[in-house]
Amino acid sequence: MTEAFIHGLILAFGLILPLGVQNVFVFNQGALQKRFIHAFPVVLTASICDTLLITLAVFGVSLMVLGSFWIKTILLTTGMVFLFYMGWSTWKSTPAAEKGKNENTAKETFTPLKQVVLSASVSLLNPHAIMDTVGVIGTSSLQYNGSEKMAFALACILVSWIWFVGLAVAGRITGEIDKSGRLMRIFNKISALVMWGAAIYIGFTLII
């Protein structure tokens, strides 16, 4: 069981580490919010969504969803629309350091509800996240049974929760250091481009 747990830790960390839409969004919200607690909705949502995907992947339920052409098409199309919208919102967002200069920009900070909706969209409607969990974690879990399979799943879930909390904290620290807002303004533009790039990629997968 210990071997399965360690395997899950290493595998999940390797999958979640690369820069992706989900990581970018969590980090960005950590930096933009005035206090870390205000970014908690996005952290909680991303963690719960990953927990759901990992659980479905390990126990095979998600294979039924991906096996349906229409369900997969609807999910990918919805995800593409959300990513274009998120990219536009992120491109226009104002760093927290600049918001104090103009009270009218305060409304651009994502509300808890908006954080939850957008975080869920990049988590559950992200083809990369789905293929990572189903294609890699789900497949890797086939070698385990019973308590070992449970230990493997728990390890993957644990990595997700720790990672997203750490990302939000790193974002908050960056936001505090970047008093001028210049660094976060650049990061916002890069984040938007990553989201638009992911949306375009989804569009190609739908066409092909």
Rank of each mutant, 00 (worst) to 15 (best):
N126S: 09
M150D: 03
I130H: 01
F110D: 06
L118N: 11
A96Y: 10
V116H: 01
P112N: 07
E108Q: 14
G166S: 15
K107L: 08
A153E: 07
G135L: 10
T109L: 15
V116T: 13
E98W: 04
S147R: 04
I137T: 06
S140M: 13
I162K: 09
F164A: 06
N104Q: 13
Y144G: 07
K101E: 14
L158M: 15
S119D: 11
S121V: 00
L158G: 14
T133F: 04
C156R: 09
K99V: 04
T94D: 04
I157R: 06
D132W: 05
S141P: 04
E148Y: 06
A106Q: 15
A153G: 02
S147C: 00
S160P: 09
L125Y: 01
T109W: 02
W161G: 12
N126Y: 04
L142P: 00
I130W: 08
A106W: 05
S93I: 14
M150H: 07
Y144K: 08
S160N: 09
S140I: 00
L113G: 05
L118E: 00
L113W: 11
D132Y: 07
A96P: 00
N104K: 13
W163P: 01
A96D: 12
T105G: 02
L167Y: 08
T111P: 03
P127K: 04
V122A: 00
T90L: 13
D132M: 11
L158Q: 06
A151V: 05
S119V: 02
G135V: 10
N104S: 14
L142K: 12
M131E: 06
S141K: 05
A97V: 11
V165F: 14
V122K: 00
A96V: 14
I130C: 05
G166F: 10
S141G: 09
Y144W: 07
S123V: 00
I162R: 07
F110G: 00
N104G: 06
T111G: 11
V159F: 11
C156N: 15
T90F: 04
S147Q: 11
K114P: 00
L154Q: 06
W91F: 15
Y144M: 07
T90V: 15
K101C: 08
T111W: 03
F152L: 07
N102R: 13
C156D: 10
L167P: 08
V116F: 13
N145K: 14
F110N: 10
A155M: 07
E148T: 03
K99P: 01
A120P: 01
S89P: 00
W91V: 03
A155I: 08
S140A: 15
N102V: 04
K92P: 02
E103K: 14
N104T: 12
N102I: 03
L113M: 13
K149H: 03
V117I: 15
P112M: 05
S141V: 05
T105A: 09
S89A: 14
G100L: 12
S140C: 02
I137C: 07
E108A: 11
L113R: 10
V165D: 01
A151I: 04
G166P: 06
S147Y: 03
P127Q: 09
L154W: 05
E108W: 08
V159K: 09
A155C: 09
A106L: 15
T111E: 07
W163E: 05
L118Y: 14
T94W: 02
F152E: 07
V169Y: 13
S93G: 07
N102H: 11
K99F: 00
